[in-house]
């Protein structure tokens, strides 16, 4: 079953097409990786799905076209996201950061406290939830952002370069956490990442884009053997 279908999605900034005629499908329950060089349109694609931008083409989530909805509406449909740069609400506690997602991200949400505490335990932020967010380290900032997104109870989670700047140990923990979110919570994940090694490890399927266009799509081991992909990545 398809959870997300993108059909000929295009976004232009003036003359430049950041995303060009992109068509792909994401299966329910999978971890779908997206890779591509800098400026290839990965984050633009996330911004299109999550309602930050709107362009042309259809973005069908669970059978409904969500293209053109505003970000908060996309969130209410069941699509959550994280950002490349860990932007949080720096002036309030980690707990309150997550509370924003738990309160505003869920329509008719009950047992708010319970849900917040569940997510705190799930991502492993217990003990740091009362620290003001600007004082936690990069990894905890990323975890907080992820926890806030999970608190909105999404069925699809978009994760934008979640491991940049982390230590090898934190990278391993992150990978394990994404797999846990996928398996235990049954949440479909689309993940953008630079580090091919991590992406190959975590994704069930992989899509490579360059200059806003799809180069290839398939199981990781297949994609990494693709000639065009090797060219794009090694600049050969």
């Amino acid at each position: 079953m398809k959870i997300l279908q993108a059909k000929e999605v295009t976004k232009r900034f003036g003359e430049l097409a950041a995303v060009k005629d992109l068509t792909f499908e994401v299966e329910k329950g999978e971890i779908f990786g997206i890779a591509g060089p800098n400026g290839s349109g990965k984050t633009t694609l996330f911004n299109l799905i999550s309602g930050v931008y709107s362009g042309s083409g259809d973005i069908i989530f669970e059978g409904e076209n969500i293209h053109g909805l505003r970000p908060f509406q996309v969130c209410h449909k069941g699509v959550a996201r994280t950002f490349q740069i860990p932007i949080l609400f720096p002036s309030i506690t980690v707990y309150d950061n997550i509370r924003v997602g738990a309160h505003f991200g869920v329509l008719k949400g009950k047992n708010e406290k319970e849900r917040i505490n569940e997510v705190i335990d799930f991502v492993g932020l217990r003990g740091r939830e009362n620290i003001v967010a600007e004082h936690v380290d990069l990894f905890d900032k990323r975890l907080t952002m992820l926890a806030g997104a999970l608190a909105t109870q999404p069925r699809l989670l978009l994760v934008d370069e979640p491991i940049a700047g982390l230590s090898p140990r934190e990278v391993r923990d992150s990978v394990a956490l994404f797999q846990k979110i996928n398996r235990e919570l049954g949440i479909t994940i689309i993940i953008i990442e630079h580090l091919m090694k991590v992406l190959v490890e975590v994704s069930h399927r992989l899509m490579i884009i360059n200059n806003g266009e799809k180069i290839c799509i398939g199981p990781p081991e297949e994609v990494t053997q693709n000639k065009e992909v090797i060219e794009v990545y090694l600049g050969g």
Partner: peptide, 19 residues
């Protein structure tokens, strides 16, 4: 909480469902 969230980071607040 919504005021502070939008103040601290509008894109993040919107992505978490704040109108």
């Amino acid at each position: 909480l919504a005021f502070v969230a939008l103040r601290d980071s509008e894109p993040y607040a919107k992505s978490l469902g704040v109108n």
